[in-house]
Amino acid sequence: MSINLLLAAVILMNFLLVATGRAVQLVRRVALQGMILGLILLLLHDEWHIHVLLMAGSTVAIKGAVIPWLLAQALSRTKEAKSPTPYVGYTLSLILLAGSTFLAFLLARKLPLQVGMLGTLFIPASLATLFTGFLLLITRRRALLQVVGYLVLENGVFLFSLLLVKNMPLLVETGVLLDLVVGIFIMGIVINHIQQAFDSQDTKRMSDLKE
């Protein structure tokens, strides 16, 4: 059950992500989480075909290296060392995350699984990671940290997709990864413009548009 151990590591990583306010640490942790996902993909298969190796390799490379590098680039252009205080404090965020992780485990029991997958933590881990992403997206004020939240959200979706690696064609898998990289790239560009225009990455300052 080494897969379940890795899935537990993903859940643990969720808590570490929510617990920190330092952008550098968040980027490192989300990179680590991405690498674990690639590892799970690899362990899920008994035989390592070219297809599997390719998918696992590109997952580790993209989620573990390329995207964190893009984020680090966006980070290095700013002088702000400290991120603004989140809308919801760290302690409360952790409590919310613990509660929702518990709920994810409860909810997962309601959904039927394939016979081979019974007893794995895929669904609770996926739902809990999804919620972590949401939490980061909503509570963090700094644009870059919101992007990290989006990435964590995407990791949750990716975890679920591992249940159907045998059914999803390569075309879709590649398309999804490509969209993700391009998406983060564009977000990076926009953050750069925000930094220049507002002299800060604090999204709270962007509040001109309202009724």
Binding site: A143, M187, V190, I194, F198, T203, D208, L209
Partner: peptide, 14 residues
Amino acid sequence: YNRRSLEATWKYLM
């Protein structure tokens, strides 16, 4: 290319 359209872009994108 101004602040307001930047805010709109960020909202749309996220």
